[in-house]
Design a protein around this nucleic acid. Structure first.
Length: 477
RNA sequence: GGCCCCAUCGUCUAGCGGUUAGGACACCGGCCUCUCACGUCGGUAACACGGGUUCAAUUCCCGUUGGGGUCGCCA
């Protein structure tokens, strides 16, 4: 039975790179009909906040990365928040000490820091390694202590990564690392191992920046006499310039993409294809991803985030009804229209007008912008457009067009187009001659969906009103 | 610097010994066209380098170079 987990630390928003880690785990769980566990690693009390927990949970929900065990849903191996598991860590660390696998270290932070500095003064390039001062200590002074693992001085740890293959790290490069702080709160490696072990996690998939943590973690499994889970490390997602991806490179939090009007499935699609491939396929529904995901086609090389490709994938998801259904499109679009002051709109009306911009809008923000003229009455007029196309000279022809529209029945795009074409022929006009003035009068802009579609969508009365109510002279200088 | 990892178009990638090295995004042209898009046709563009192994290397091995990760009582 596959059991995987995503274990964010609540120290901020949910980073796009974190989402990819969550996604790969989630996809694997779904593919294997296994269990996806969400665990909150809040042992850094300095930086962890409950607000951040909320943000992360909300982001995962928005993305649709539902968890089977974890905060809110519970499960048989809870609690799923580390600070609520301190008793479990204590029990485990004491067991290691009892078994002679770990020991209490009474060295103070200050002492160690001094040693570190001294070493640095002698050799700036040297790496400080805990000298094992308390390793064989037999007394038990009444002083604060940390718990350190007795790491073998020779030998090596080898594991087979599902992405990178066999990885071997010599033990000589390791040290007796700290498992539990002097205040009884575990450190990352210890907490993660105890949790993964007690939660029955079978595969740990995480970013490559954690690869260095794997040997120490495997040592812990060995110390506990437990079998280590499988490991899969994902290549890094870097900024376009090769740096670590951060806010200074643009939007990196899920919340920002939600605000920018991205579709959650498009976000997952882009992230899935980053470091993983399925032949030449670029666009996937979630079901397709679940069905196709594997570790064999996960890449080893780091990659660079490409905002343009991300946008293109989002555009694709907004274009294809199979990826974003009419109802979903409507629901996601509504808040963005509301944000523009177009509240209380009739869902059916919004839905009916989506075909006008389906192929054009790259985001829901873009869609709301392109549809603004439909719902705003009068429409917002672009000054430059009015100046260029709506002079006194255009009023008569627009008036005539309005007259053509007045008797049209049925009020369909086809019928409107046929009648307008007939009128153009009769008057010896070209569509070019009237399209732009009409477009500006109807939408306030020089760019819009097709003229006939616009007329049909506005409805007879509003179309006629907009065509005939143009000021004799524009308001612009 | 120690330890670990990586290397195909600008970017994401296909390739798993023999291919005109394919696709997507971006970019540049043409077509379509009432604007904007969409669509469509075409183009520029890559196997880091050096040794092996092999009849044959982008593919396997080694090295070089380049890049990345990590060296905390952070995660």
């Amino acid at each position: 039975m596959t059991r995987v987990r995503f274990a964010p630390s609540p120290t901020g928003y949910l980073h796009i790179g974190g989402v990819r880690t969550a996604l790969f785990n989630w996809l694997w769980a779904r593919r294997q009909k296994g269990t996806f566990i969400l665990r909150i690693e809040d042992t850094d009390q300095e930086r962890s906040t409950t607000e951040s927990v909320r943000v992360i949970l909300d982001s995962l929900k928005w993305l649709g990365l539902t968890w089977d065990e974890g905060p809110g849903v519970g499960g048989p191996h809870g609690p799923y928040t580390q600070m609520e598991r301190l008793a479990i860590y204590r029990e485990h660390s004491e067991r290691l000490i009892r078994d002679g696998k770990a020991y209490r270290c009474y060295c103070t932070r200050e002492e160690l820091e001094a040693q570190r500095q001294a070493l640095k003064a002698r050799d700036p390039k040297a790496t400080f390694k805990y000298p094992g001062t308390c390793r064989n200590r037999t007394d038990q002074p009444d002083l604060p202590f940390v718990v350190r693992l007795k790491v073998p001085e020779s030998g090596a740890v080898t594991y087979v990564d599902k992405v990178f293959g066999s990885v071997t790290t010599p033990n000589a490069a390791q040290q007796d690392f700290v498992c539990v702080r002097s205040d009884g709160v575990p450190l990352y490696n210890f907490g993660a191992v105890v949790d993964d072990m007690t939660m029955g996690v079978t595969l740990v998939a995480r970013g490559r920046d954690h690869m260095v943590n794997t040997p120490p973690q495997i040592m812990l499994y060995e110390a506990f006499g437990a079998r280590a889970p499988d490991f899969a490390h994902l290549p890094m997602m870097l900024a376009p310039n090769g740096e670590k991806l951060s806010k200074r490179h643009g939007a990196v939090s899920v919340g920002e993409y939600e605000k920018q009007g991205y579709s959650p499935n498009a976000v997952l699609n882009y992230l899935a294809r980053f470091g993983w491939s399925h032949g030449d396929q670029e666009v996937f529904s979630i079901d397709e991803l679940v069905a196709a995901f594997d570790w064999e086609h996960t890449n080893k090389a780091d990659g660079k985030f490409d905002a343009k490709k991300f946008l293109a994938i989002n555009h694709e998801h907004l274009k294809q009804p199979r990826l974003t259904g009419e109802d979903e499109y409507t629901e996601r679009l509504l808040p963005f229209l509301e944000a523009r002051g177009l509240g209380g709109l009739d869902r059916a009306r919004v839905k009916s007008v989506i075909p006008l911009i389906r192929e054009r809008a790259t985001t829901f923000v873009d869609a709301a912008d392109r549809l603004d003229f439909v719902f705003r009455d009068p429409p917002a007029m672009d000054v430059a457009a009015v100046t260029k196309f709506l002079g006194p000279q255009s009023a008569p022809v627009l008036q005539q067009l309005a007259d053509v529209l007045r008797p049209i029945e049925p009020w369909t795009v086809q019928e409107i187009e046929a009648r307008v074409q007939a009128w153009l022929v009769e008057k010896g006009l070209q569509i070019k001659d009237v399209a732009q003035p009409a477009r500006v009068a109807l939408t306030g802009r020089t760019a819009s969906p097709g003229l006939y579609e616009v007329i049909q969508a506005l409805g007879r009365d509003r179309a006629i009103a907009r065509l005939t109510s143009q000021p004799a002279s524009p308001t612009s200088p």
